[in-house]
Computed example of a mutant assay.
Amino acid sequence: MSPRQTAGLGALFVAGCYLTGIAFVLGPLAPLGLGTGAMDGAAVLQLTRQSPWLLPLWMTVIYDLSALGTALAGLGLARALARDLPHLALASAATALIWTGLTLASGMVARAGLAELAALAPQDLPRALETWRILHLIETGLSGRTEALGGLWIGLASLAALRIGALSGVAGLLGAGVALAGLATYLPPLSQGGGMVFGLGAILWCGWAGVEWILPRPAET
């Protein structure tokens, strides 16, 4: 498998993780109001008591597995770029790996929040809910509330892939739009709307780019 195809496999894996995460949010996790600003610790506590495996499984998919897919895509693309665009390859790889680290850290904080909520609730419910709220803010701050780093990587990846002919113009334009949406989340008034556009756009871009990268070029067939 070539480095470009490795990047494609990683991108498709990321898209699959995000789609699975959305299926959870719209299905068994719908009562929590994830992504609506209405999520609260009481609902999380009730769900963890009823189905203690559900939220950890969701976190594994959207944080751990998607982060590994991002690392695979970022490093595969960097190897494909190394000969023709070495500086852009380094910048792209570094951005992808930092994004990977922040995503994994967000998952760790999320699990810590669940553990503290479950441990403190029987003795001091208000304290448990406040502790969870603080940890949840840290979780979303690391990954989700601000998507600028993800937008930067997608923008760099799209630019670099276009320059070596590894991505179509339409996919490149899509990547640019997704990058702008991610960068817009740096501005608090645009955080929620930009995050939604980035999330949906990132799924489409990862799927599209993944297919283009994983299929052999005419010269390779």
Rank of each mutant, 00 (worst) to 15 (best):
W99Y: 13
L129K: 04
P122I: 14
T103R: 12
Q123N: 08
I138S: 10
A119V: 03
L102D: 08
L125P: 07
L65R: 04
P86N: 13
R133W: 05
V109C: 04
R83I: 09
R127S: 10
L72F: 00
L90K: 14
A82T: 00
L81T: 09
A78V: 07
A128S: 12
L120M: 14
D84M: 05
L102Y: 10
R133C: 08
L102P: 07
L137I: 13
P122G: 14
L88R: 09
A96T: 06
Q123C: 11
S92A: 08
L102V: 10
L90N: 11
T95F: 14
D84H: 03
L114V: 05
Q123R: 12
T95M: 14
A105Q: 13
A73P: 07
L129S: 04
T131E: 07
L88K: 04
A73F: 10
E139I: 12
L135W: 03
A73M: 14
L135S: 05
L114H: 02
A105V: 10
Q123D: 12
A89I: 05
T103D: 04
L72S: 00
A112K: 08
L85A: 07
L81M: 12
L88H: 03
L97V: 07
H136A: 15
D84K: 05
A115M: 12
L129P: 01
I138R: 10
L72T: 02
T103Q: 11
L81Q: 08
E139S: 14
L75C: 09
I134Y: 12
G101D: 01
A91H: 12
W132M: 15
R133H: 10
W99R: 02
L117F: 09
T100R: 09
A73Y: 06
A89P: 01
L75P: 01
A93R: 08
D124A: 14
L137Y: 08
S92R: 00
L65H: 01
A73W: 10
W132C: 12
W99Q: 13
T103G: 12
G101E: 00
D124F: 09
L125F: 08
I134T: 15
A82H: 01
L137W: 11
R133D: 10
S92L: 07
G107N: 05
T95G: 13
I134E: 13
T131I: 09
P86F: 12
A110V: 01
S66Y: 03
A105D: 09
T131Y: 06
R127N: 08
E130G: 07
R111A: 14
P86K: 12
L117M: 09
E139P: 03
A110F: 03
E116W: 04
S66E: 02
A89G: 09
A118I: 13
A115E: 12
T70M: 15
A110C: 05
S92Q: 02
